[in-house]
Design a protein around this nucleic acid. Structure first.
Ligand code: SF4
Ligand code: SF4
Lengths: 162, 162
DNA sequence: GTAAATAAGGATATTCTTTATCCTTGATTG
DNA sequence: CAATCAAGGATAAAGAATATCCTTATTTAC
């Protein structure tokens, strides 16, 4: 059970978009080049973000993506779920229904304890991601990334932002 | 990102094995029949449990599987990891290394904040599973399952336990 | 107006994982 | 000695993730 690499891509792209000045857009092409990713496939991840309403888009030259809300209002969970989907990681195939001792017509009304426990763990994972804002990430990165790299990356992006 | 169905199978099998009297074994055949699962493939899941040291095995007629330790000492996490593996659900492909502004020879020493945050969420999931014992599951099931079904299932198993 | 650049998304191909089956081996029981 | 079992290798089928290509409609810059 491994998350898609698109999750990593989307998080990195959002971190870049968070540094974009108001009203500017950054294109798929620039984001792909900056991260060394296949443009067409990265585009699918960005489309997922767009469909989830996390980013705004603009067409034409100088078009691209920007965040739809402030980084402090955007959680990791939103980004992860936009790409990975909201389905729980444990799916119940109801194998208890095959129990040969089960009385005929007996109908399990609710999910059994196994599923509930697994879903609680799933929810703990989501709750953790819900607690981290994109602004938190930017805060950490701004401290950890060497100032000259931070500055040059910012300039690289600004040159290409429409 | 969905857990393998073998996780569900392994949890259910362990729940059954937890009710087995001391010194008795239950075969793959019986476990597969009880849950309506393909015997050969379920066998792979049980082999995973065996390799992880969670169950003991015995060969020959009247052989099969039994728990290697008391249900109170067996956590959900151990069972899940035996089948699903211990690898973290977020893998870092180090895309920051492709940053065109990155100074030549600049070497990121440690995983970046994105990975660390994702790994913390992963750990929250594991911590939750670590906190649930197999005995907890049995306790809940014994309350929720209708007594006559509980009893007949127990007898069904005992008839086939070697 | 026109040409270039862009997001959106459909179609398809490739690769990897999961699921499943089959068969052999060696051990154990009765 | 015959039946039964776990272990595990080989292989196949199905499904998901990854990747590429192409078309369409829109917007910008000139
Ligand atoms: S986890 Fe419980 S409810 Fe879900 S399939 Fe298994 S037995 Fe059924
Ligand atoms: S999460 Fe951070 S460390 Fe991991 S690949 Fe992405 S940039 Fe690199």
């Amino acid at each position: 059970m491994i998350l898609k690499s698109q999750v990593e891509w989307a998080l990195h792209c959002c971190a870049i978009l968070a540094g974009l000045p108001d009203g500017r857009y950054l294109s798929t092409k620039a984001l792909a080049e900056f991260h060394g990713l296949p443009k067409e496939y990265l585009s699918k991840a960005l489309q997922s973000l767009s469909q989830a309403g996390l980013v705004d888009t603009a067409l034409g030259p100088s078009g691209g993506y920007r965040l739809a809300k402030p980084p402090a209002d955007l959680t990791f969970l939103e980004i992860v779920e936009a790409v990975e989907g909201q389905q729980r990681t444990f799916v119940c195939t109801n194998i208890r229904a095959n129990n040969p001792c089960r009385p005929k017509g007996y109908c399990e009304s609710s999910p059994c304890a196994v599923a509930r426990i697994m879903w609680e763990a799933d929810e703990a994972w989501r709750e953790k991601l819900r607690g981290v804002k994109l602004s938190d990430l930017v805060g950490i990165l701004s401290k950890e990334i060497p100032p000259e790299l931070w500055k040059s990356s910012f300039e690289w992006v600004l040159e290409r932002a429409g």
